[in-house]
Structures are given as C-alpha cells and as structure tokens.
Amino acid sequence: MSESLGVTPAQTVGPYLHIGLSWPDGPYVVPEGTPGAFWLRGRIVDGTGAAVVDAMVESWQADPDGRFDHPDDPRGARPSAVPGFRGFGRSETDTEGRYALHIVKPGPLPTFDGDTEAPHLTLSVFGRGLLHRLVTRVYFSGEAANATDPVLRTVDPQRRDTLLARPATDGFQFDIRLQGEHETVFFAV
C-alpha cells in the first residue's frame, strides 16, 4: 500500500533572520573612515505605520565609478578603486524598525541599450509574513540624472518620491513602507 504525502505549505522568509544571517560588519559596504562614505538610514513600517522589528535589508551597489567587480558587468569585472569596497551590505532592523548601511554613493551605470541609469542602490527586504523578498531601488534626491533614468521614468510620477533618499545629518534617510498609502515602489525581479 502506498501513501501519498500532502503538499508542504509555503514558508515565509523570517522571522529568524538574526540567526546566522547577520554578521558584525554586515552594514559596512565600505570600512569606517573611507573617504566620501556616509550612512543610509531608514525605518521599515507596515501598512499601519507600525515598525517592522524583525526584518533585514540587503544592499547591492556599484562603486563610485559605476563599476561592479562581477562577471555580469557588461564592461567586464573590475575591482573597485575604493579600498575595502564590497558592494554588498546587510542590516537587520532594531526594536524601532530602523536599519543602517555604511556606503559610498554609487556612480551612474550604462544600460545594455546605451542609456544611463542614475546613481542608485538596489535593496532587498526580507521579513516575517513575506513569501518572497521585496526589491526596491534607492535614488538620491537632487541628482540631475534622476530625470532621465530609464527605470525611474517607468514609475508613476506620483510614486517616484517613494524611491528617493532624503539628505540627513550623517548621510541619507530612506524609509520603506510595505503597504498602504505611500507604499514604497517594489519591482518584480
């Protein structure tokens, strides 16, 4: 007699992100003391505005020259001229839903069709209740190249501000709202 097993239920990402997925220098895309480095700080909130206290943010970015030390860079992989630059960071949220990443501003990126993307970071958000990571971009307010960025131009003009980091005392502030009014724009990747 054969037995049939049922379908395994879907699992959400989290809430155990703090076990094995964070490390002490995770938020440091560049080492402390790196010339031009600053903090990108923000809060993650749910649709009601409540802090999401058990989430994690991962960042991926080009160096200040707009280059990646990765084979998928269409110009070829090249180590960054910034000592200690790794292009990747990871920060869990605290009891107020705050995260922080120590970064340098990325340079503009060429696209495969000859366009140029404005300086930006890609952020992935993981947390309890999410079946998949959420992916967004962080652009920097005041960048002239934002007006012609091919990805930003595809976003409803009334929602583009959800992708803009605002200047702060020690860098930039970028809050992430998971649902509701002023929800951050997320991309299907």
Rank of each mutant, 00 (worst) to 15 (best):
F172E: 04
L152Y: 09
G87Y: 08
V82F: 04
Q61W: 02
H132Q: 09
G107R: 03
P64C: 10
A144T: 09
L130K: 09
M56G: 05
P106M: 08
V13I: 15
E96L: 10
L130D: 03
F112P: 03
S59T: 14
A37T: 10
G36H: 05
G42F: 03
T93W: 15
D54G: 03
G47S: 10
W23H: 12
L134G: 08
L109E: 14
S59I: 11
R159N: 12
Y99M: 00
A50V: 05
Y99F: 05
R133V: 06
E181Q: 05
T162H: 11
L130I: 02
P15N: 12
H182C: 01
A77F: 13
A147R: 15
R41H: 01
E96I: 01
L17R: 04
W23E: 09
T95A: 12
V7P: 01
R75E: 09
P35E: 12
L109W: 14
A81M: 07
G36S: 07
V52Q: 09
G97N: 08
G76F: 05
V125G: 00
V82G: 02
G127I: 02
F187W: 15
W39N: 02
Q179H: 11
R86F: 04
Y99R: 00
T34H: 06
V104W: 07
G129R: 13
D161P: 03
L163G: 02
T95V: 06
G89L: 06
V53Q: 10
I103K: 00
G6H: 14
K105H: 05
L121I: 09
G89S: 11
V104K: 03
T12A: 03
P150S: 01
F112E: 07
P83V: 03
L121Y: 07
A81G: 12
V30H: 00
E183D: 08
F88G: 02
L21V: 01
T148N: 06
G89K: 09
Y99V: 00
R153K: 14
P106T: 05
V7F: 05
D170E: 15
D170I: 14
R137E: 12
R153H: 14
E183T: 14
D65V: 03
V155T: 04
V138Q: 01
R43K: 12
F140G: 04
T12M: 00
D25L: 07
T111S: 14
P150K: 10
L163R: 04
P167I: 05
T148D: 07
V155L: 05
T154R: 15
F126L: 09
P9L: 11
P106V: 05
R41V: 01
R75L: 07
F126D: 07
T162A: 10
D175H: 12
Q11Y: 10
P35R: 06
A10P: 06
H182V: 00
G36P: 03
T111C: 09
S141A: 14
A50H: 15
P157Y: 13
V7L: 08
R160L: 04
K105P: 04
V30F: 00
P31H: 02
W23F: 13
G180V: 13
A147H: 12
E143H: 11
F85A: 03
D113G: 13
R137Q: 12
P35H: 12
